[in-house]
Design a protein around this nucleic acid. Structure first.
Length: 1168
RNA sequence: AGGGCUAUAGCUCAGUUGGUUAGAGCGCUACACUGAUAAUGUAGAGGUCACCAGUUCAACUCUGGUUAGCCCUACCA
């Protein structure tokens, strides 16, 4: 992979040979080529760039104070690059190149993301170990070393892709996140946050407590990344319980009771019965309606009233059983009679209703909990999708529960915690067992999967969930017990279920900067805008604090040292500070030596495990140990604007010139990743945006819209793609097919289309230019440029189109709309330049001697090609440079000597052409558009009448549309006549009486005037006769009565068309009508035949590979059908085919050619 | 579950502030043109603009809802 195949090399060699032949013959000529082979062009240009340091020069030649700042989001080099990296890097590259052309200095420092779980996983896989083996089977030092060598595993592959796709980024001085300097900058940022206080006086960096996924079997917390690994979410069947919480009769709950003795319960469902001993509250939705139902306890038959959401009644009660006699029920019966007492209790009313603890644990419950807990609270997260609309709430085992209890002031339940007197320890320990204090179940694993296999297989084994359910049933506190299948996350390593468990973590108080982040976000230009306002904006509105802690080895260590009691704490913000603290510690006898005496580059390693050996001393003389956590790798990447320059320790000036970024681009999946962490750190530490413009590109899917994955085998190899089609066609396809923020259905057919359509057409156009320029000895002379005014209409038209394109193209890229820019350029090259300008100009190039008109044609085409090449160069950097160099090579020396615009070695060193309104002539563009439409209509008539284009026709009739029409058409008359092969144009006016007119309502102007009468008016107008239309045109107004109302109609309210010229062959498009005189005379037929003969002879010349300039002898077999043609147009034919002799005679040799009317004659063409 | 994006011809995509007959390229069919030949033109076939309601004289376009695909986030008890 990635290496040139033999066939490519051969093609390349062939390519070079062709080129050398050309060069040898005349080194000052334009290079000509047989075939277009983009990968060969890539190779040639790539070599040229490296030899001539074009990238470096493109940056250096721009002034340092004119910077356009770009940040590279660091990829991780421990995985191979994929095709999706090509699209995001194309986006990055093209805007950087574009702004370089506009004169900006665009530094592009590369970077590598080197920390994080994927690297740890890979290392463990390669060493054949698991996390538990770290420190046992391998030392942490060895582990650290292995990580170091793994992170750059595929760096060469990445660098290769970077070069092959033409992505210009500084590969020699990248920032690397594992370097001490980088880590030091991260520490500095963390210290800023640590010292900075919110408006409420709280530090931005704090230690807190949250509910996180935790694997007791592995004894570690899990990141969301780990939870998103394949196979972690599994279908499991759990025992679920609908528990009955007995309501206490108090002032707050009295309104619910019929009498003080009533047995009133609230129903709540849980899929994790093991959390019931930890229940301290029930959460209801404030706006959900709840019902009170009188019924019987299903398992005991005792009378009971229950409360649950009105919408959930049908899940627990069958309407058939409503109001059935209670006496008939026996415990265990399926039919449970019930009576709805009321169904209008809003959740908010239930708030504060107290209940008895479900599983009493008097030893554990504190007086504070007794007072503030065991009551109903409200929460927005409650739904009535399933369960009872009441959520059993155990704060230590659910993130929602935790938040709800905190918000409602409900204390947590737990046992005394030696580490933290303020927060009780949960009732489940870190191995997954109930603590001993839990009545009945103390010491049991909460999930059956945590027991050993043998224990689980024992005949009398019962899972804890089941034991709890059965206990509740006995106690008349269970309403329903059933199995329930759902998905539940599992630890990817142990395969055992995850618990949600309270863990200590360090947080960044991002929620305190929520408004500021939202406000700054509004100043960022998002592409597409919806990602900024939608996905990102709404995420900011609901921002939670950022959990920084990770229990890992390979990452940036949290620079916080604490005494054991947590009373004293130090956040270190630099190596220098750490060095000083270490000196103090050594002096105090905490450490033997100071590990940080060496240089930051090589003297020490700030990673674990080394950093863990550093014991500092507190002001009061106690030892301080480092908080064991590492920080989230996303903090690493969000720190890159500062850390890439080792700010603030070095490069303060550089940083100032390169902050914030003008532009960044990554995949849309980075919205809450890199885009967020950049924004968060910039807002909190610098009160600034980190970037002003951001393009988020979509995913690359396969041809059928499926995600690419190794298992599906639909992964596209980027190296192979670049190898097969070349970088430019691939890049162009990716930018032009769809907006980069839409998902791309990657189809190689699309690349082929880009290659044929755009690059093939441009290649042909260039080759056409080179062929004739070399024949005529034309060379662009920048000092003898013909003024536009002296050039042909067609030249001025294409120049006008070209500068319209320049304006459109620049506007699109200035607005970060690459797709619009690409499509505009494609249209210009294909529709205008190739299919109109070159096609109609061909004759000017190959006919006759050099003269002013011919020079004008060359200069015009030259200008189009150079400008197009320059415009497309940000997207197609190789082909455009190849084109530029081919076009400028013959004049390069002169241009350099005279310091003219063509002097640059590479298109990427040029200054982008400025929009120039003086070159744009919209009126000219409009009349050429007329010409094109007239030709199109005329050709369609020919087609319908089966009149081939080589057969000349006498006359075309054009009804005159308005005052300027004749002048407009006359200006382009000769083009029209030769294009459609007609002798003359005749204009027809009303006065001729030939025209049959029609009228249509102009809905836009009439709609506002007529309103409801619009429909009928349109019908009336459509029925207007010639006379009525003429009358309106003459008087300028007419009255139209519709449904009794009368309206004043003006000519603007109608669209008048010529429908027909009776007796003529007519084609109509919109207002434009074309009629052809299809009468054939012997003269016309002979001329047509002469042109056919010319065509056949030219084909023979081409087949025989004659040189374009060879003169020939032609012998044509005599035939009655062609005799008039050969006789009348003898000189014409000779001139066209460069024949010295043309005779009608029996040829001795030659080919049989077929002519109109099934005539076949033999023609012999020989070089003189 | 929440949020976001997308839905127009067989395929890839345009479609301006609502306005008449919804377009282009590729592919298919037929016929042309060409001293640019891995191109090009003309014509044809191919559409209930995902679905349902609403606003309006008029909806692909605006509003609300539904469905499907994808992405991000999420222990739904």
């Amino acid at each position: 992979m990635g290496k040139p195949t033999t066939s490519t090399l051969q093609k390349f060699i062939t390519h070079l040979i062709i080129e050398q032949t050309t060069l040898r013959s005349n080194s000052r000529m334009y290079r000509e080529f047989k075939h277009l082979h983009l990968p060969s062009i890539d190779a040639e240009i790539r070599q040229f760039w490296e030899d001539e340091r074009i990238f470096e020069r493109s940056v250096e030649q721009r002034p340092a104070d004119q910077s356009f700042v770009f940040y590279e989001g660091p990829p991780s080099a421990n995985g191979k690059p994929g095709i999706h990296h090509v699209i995001s890097r194309t986006v990055k590259d093209l805007f950087c190149r574009y702004h370089t052309l506009k004169g900006k200095r665009v530094e592009r420092k590369g970077g590598w993301d080197t920390h994080g779980l994927p690297i740890e996983l890979q290392v463990e896989k390669e060493l054949g170990i698991t996390k538990e083996d770290i420190g046992k089977k391998v030392t942490v030092e060895e582990y650290n070393q292995a990580c170091r060598s793994t992170v750059m595993r595929y760096k060469d592959l990445w660098d290769d892709l970077t070069r092959r796709m033409g992505y210009w980024v500084d590969l020699d001085n990248p920032y690397i996140t594992f370097k001490n300097e980088y880590i030091e900058s991260c520490w500095w940022l963390l210290q800023q946050l640590y010292n900075k206080k919110t408006a409420a006086g709280e530090p931005f960096l704090y230690k807190g407590f949250t509910i996180q996924p935790f694997s007791p079997a592995a004894g570690t917390g899990l990141s969301t990344h780990e939870l998103n690994m394949p196979g972690t979410y599994k279908d499991v069947t759990d025992i679920t319980v609908v528990a009955m919480f007995k309501v206490r009769y108090t002032a707050a709950s009295g309104f619910l009771f019929d009498d003080t003795e009533e047995d009133l319960r609230i129903l709540a469902w849980t899929t994790t019965p093991w959390t019931l001993p930890s229940n301290v509250a029930l959460t209801v939705g404030p706006d959900i309606e709840y019902a009170k139902v009188k019924t019987l306890s299903p398992y005991t038959g005792s009378p009971v009233s229950v409360i649950l959401a009105k919408d959930r009644l049908s899940a627990y009660f069958n309407p058939e059983d409503e109001n059935q006699p209670f006496e008939d029920f026996a415990p265990g019966d399926k039919k449970l009679p019930y009576r709805v007492i009321r169904a209008d209790i809003r959740g908010a009313e239930l708030s504060g209703v107290p209940f008895e603890q479900l599983l009493p644990s008097p030893e554990i419950v504190t007086p504070e909990l007794e007072e503030k807990g065991f009551r109903v609270i409200t929460g927005d997260f409650v739904t009535t999708e399933d369960g009872t609309g009441v959520v059993h709430t155990a704060p230590y085992f659910g993130a929602d529960d935790f938040r709800a209890c905190k918000a409602a002031g409900v204390p947590f339940i737990g046992v005394p915690n030696p580490q933290n007197p303020d927060l009780p320890a949960p009732l489940v320990d870190r191995t997954g067992r109930f603590v001993q204090e839990v009545p009945l179940f103390g010491g049991r694993f909460v999930k059956e999967e945590y027991y050993h296999e043998e224990e689980r297989r024992a005949p009398d084994f019962k899972p804890t969930d089941l034991l709890i359910a059965l206990h509740l049933k006995e106690q008349n506190r269970a309403f329903r017990i059933e199995k329930y299948k759902h998905t539940y996350p599992h630890c990817w390593r142990t395969d055992k279920p995850v618990l949600y468990y309270p863990l200590d973590s360090w947080f960044i108080r991002a929620s305190a900067a929520r408004e500021r982040m939202a406000a700054l976000n509004k100043t960022i230009n998002w592409k597409p805008a919806s990602t900024g306002t939608g996905r990102f904006g709404q995420w900011l509105e609901n921002l939670q604090d950022w959990n920084l802690s990770r229990s890992r080895y390979w990452g940036v260590p949290l620079p916080i040292w604490r005494t054991e009691d947590g009373e004293e704490e130090l956040c270190v913000g630099s190596v220098e500070e750490l060095r000083r603290e270490a000196d103090k510690a050594v002096a105090a006898g905490m450490m033997d030596t100071n590990p940080f005496t060496g240089s930051i580059e090589t003297g020490f390693d700030l990673h674990r495990p080394y950093i863990d050996d550093v014991v500092l001393v507190s002001p009061s003389g106690k030892p301080m140990r480092r908080e064991a956590d590492l920080i989230d790798v996303w903090f690493d990447s969000g720190s890159m604007p500062y850390a890439q320059w080792h700010y603030p320790f070095e490069n303060q000036e550089v940083f100032k010139n390169n902050y914030p970024a003008d532009f960044i681009a990554e995949g849309v999946d980075q919205t809450r990743g890199w885009f967020y962490t950049l924004h968060a750190i910039a807002t909190m530490v610098f009160d600034s945006v980190a970037y002003k413009n951001v393009v988020s590109n979509g995913l690359v899917l396969d041809k059928s819209g499926n995600k690419m994955s190794k298992s599906k085998g639909n992964v596209v190899d980027p190296f192979q793609t670049l190898e097969d089609y070349g970088a430019d066609a691939t890049r162009w396809y990716m930018m032009s097919n769809a907006n980069p923020w839409d998902n791309l259905k990657f189809d190689q057919g699309g690349i082929l289309e880009a290659r044929n359509k755009l690059f093939g057409t441009l290649f042909n156009t260039y080759n056409f230019f080179a062929l004739y320029a070399n024949l005529d000895g034309f060379k662009m002379d920048e000092f003898k440029v013909l003024p536009y005014a002296q050039r042909a209409e067609l030249d001025r038209w294409i120049i006008s189109k070209l500068y319209s394109l320049v304006a459109d193209f620049r506007a699109a890229l200035d607005d970060y709309e690459p797709t619009k820019a690409c499509r505009a350029l494609e249209e210009f090259v294909d529709e205008h330049l190739s299919n109109w300008y070159v096609r109609l100009s061909r004759r000017r190039f190959w006919k006759g001697e050099m003269n002013e008109d011919k020079t004008a044609a060359y200069q015009t085409l030259f200008e189009c090609l150079t400008v197009v090449g320059q415009l497309m160069s940000p997207v197609a950097p190789f082909f455009s440079d190849w084109l530029y160099r081919n076009l400028t090579a013959p004049v390069k020396e002169v241009a350099k000597a005279k310091n003219t615009p063509l002097r640059h070695d590479s298109v990427h060193l040029t200054d982008l052409v400025m929009p120039d309104n003086s070159k744009v002539d919209k009126a000219l563009e409009r009349r050429m558009d007329h010409a094109q439409r007239i030709c199109s209509l005329a050709l369609s008539i020919r087609k319908k009448e089966k009149l081939r284009v080589r057969l000349p026709l006498q006359k075309m009739l054009l009804p005159v549309l308005d005052a300027t029409f004749i002048a407009e058409v006359d200006a382009v008359k000769s083009l029209i006549l030769s294009e459609i092969n007609v002798k003359q144009i005749e204009y027809v006016t009303d006065a001729s009486g030939l025209l049959k007119k029609g009228a249509k309502a102009n809905f836009k102007t009439l709609g506002a005037k007529l309103g409801k009468d619009m429909k009928e008016a349109a019908a009336l107008i459509a029925a207007f006769s010639n006379e009525e239309i003429n009358a309106l045109e003459k008087t300028g107004s007419v009255q139209l009565s519709v449904n009794g109302a009368s309206y004043d109609i003006t000519p603007e309210d109608l669209i008048i068309t010529t429908e027909d010229l009776p007796g003529w062959k007519v084609a109509v498009e919109g207002a434009l009508t074309v009629a052809l005189d299809v009468t054939l005379t012997p003269e016309l037929v002979a001329e047509g035949m002469a042109r056919d003969l010319v065509n056949r002879i030219q084909n023979i010349r081409k087949d025989k590979d004659f040189n374009v300039t060879d003169r020939v002898k032609v012998v044509v077999e005599p035939h009655e059908a062609i005799r008039p043609a050969v006789e009348t147009f003898h000189d014409y034919i000779k001139a066209e085919v460069l024949a010295s002799d043309l005779v009608l005679a029996e040829p001795s040799d030659g080919e049989a050619v077929e002519l109109d009317g099934g005539v076949t004659v033999r023609v012999d063409v020989q070089v003189n």
